[in-house]
């Protein structure tokens, strides 16, 4: 057996996927919390994936995406290091070929991607405002002492509408507290929150966008049935959540690696064994000019596997 590895190192989660090379079937899939330690998350994930695949499986190529893509690329030896937008679009196109709108809400950012005839024609990405992202839901779930996994189920059980201000997390939170003290049920407040988040997303990221079906909703937040239902209500169309909604970035990375390896004919993947090595991340200030760039150095044992962060390419190595 052989196939391609895709890794999506996000701020909140680190996801792994292995596709077989014949029909892109998913051989292994893993969703881990990054917990602020991407190197550990990558090593742990690689370990799990390698055990799951067993000895006979050969990795033909590896692709990485997400905000930690450069780091992951240096550690595993990636053939494709791509941005999240391209990765998500490629994955959605493969899973749902006639997709024309991708709604993606992750832990720290949210994006919308529009496709026409299988080509990305428009996208928007928001990463400053947290009001439209998973972190905010996480935080509110913790405040309401409700496991985030149950959030969606509770939301769709809501009986009445509660309007929560969705423009800003601070406003939303004070509004929620106000509504809670007025005696609204937890279900109604959570549903109101889902609606507020969707409203915020469409007003911010989706502003001025022509949202045509087929609509695909992916990213970690797609697990939340309340948000999905809120999208369907507002957009008046069916919203598809693909089976592997939470690892779509990783799927895209694996597909892009396949594309890249087809071009180059060989892979840079270092194998699963390197995961036993110790990776060290250090930084120093370059004093070559007045920019004083902070240079980051990733080393594996004694060998330097990656170095970046400068404004020029003096130290660049990846």
């Amino acid at each position: 057996m052989q196939g391609y590895l895709g890794i999506d190192v996000g701020s909140v989660s680190t996801n792994f996927i292995v596709l077989d090379d014949v029909n892109n079937n998913i051989k292994s899939s893993l969703y881990l919390r990054t917990n602020g330690q991407p190197i550990e998350a990558i090593q742990e994930g690689m370990d799990v994936v390698s055990n799951e695949l067993g000895n006979g499986f050969k990795i033909l190529g590896a692709g990485v995406t997400g905000s930690g893509r450069q780091l992951a690329g240096a550690i595993v030896g990636a053939d494709a290091i791509k941005n999240e937008i391209t990765a998500h679009a490629v994955a959605a196109l493969t899973m749902v070929p006639d997709v024309r709108t991708i709604l993606e809400i992750g832990g720290q950012d949210s994006k919308i991607i529009l496709l026409r005839d299988g080509v990305v024609t428009d996208f928007a990405m928001n990463s400053v405002c947290a009001a439209g992202t998973g972190s905010f839901l996480d935080q509110q779930a913790a405040r309401l002492k409700t496991p985030i996994e149950e959030f969606g189920e509770l939301a769709i059980r809501s009986q009445s509408q509660v309007r929560i201000a969705g423009r800003c997390t601070v406003f939303a939170e004070s509004d929620m507290i106000h509504k809670q003290q007025m005696g609204y049920s937890r279900e109604d407040i959570i549903w109101g929150l889902c609606e507020a988040l969707v409203r915020n997303y469409l007003n911010n990221v989706g502003k001025g966008k022509e949202i045509l079906s087929t609509v695909v909703f992916q990213g970690g937040v797609a697990a939340n049935k309340g948000i999905k239902q809120a999208f369907e209500t507002v957009l008046e169309t069916k919203v598809i959540v693909p089976e592997y909604y939470d690892v779509m970035g990783a799927i895209g990375a694996a597909l892009l690696a396949k594309e890249e390896v087809a071009l180059t004919g060989s892979t840079k993947f270092k194998g699963f064994d390197v995961m036993q090595e110790t990776f060290l991340c250090k930084s120093f200030d370059c004093s070559g000019c007045s920019n004083n760039c902070e240079i980051i150095v990733i080393s594996m044992g004694k060998e330097i596997v990656g170095r970046w962060g400068g404004r020029c390419d003096k130290w660049e190595l990846s």
Partner: peptide, 25 residues
């Protein structure tokens, strides 16, 4: 990436459909 993919595969343009807005922040 988007511009390159679009260039490789020109779209059948209907009205003002092909456009992009991205928020930089």
């Amino acid at each position: 990436d988007m511009l390159k993919r679009k260039k490789r595969q020109p779209l059948k343009v209907v009205g003002g459909e092909k456009y992009a807005r991205v928020f930089g922040n």
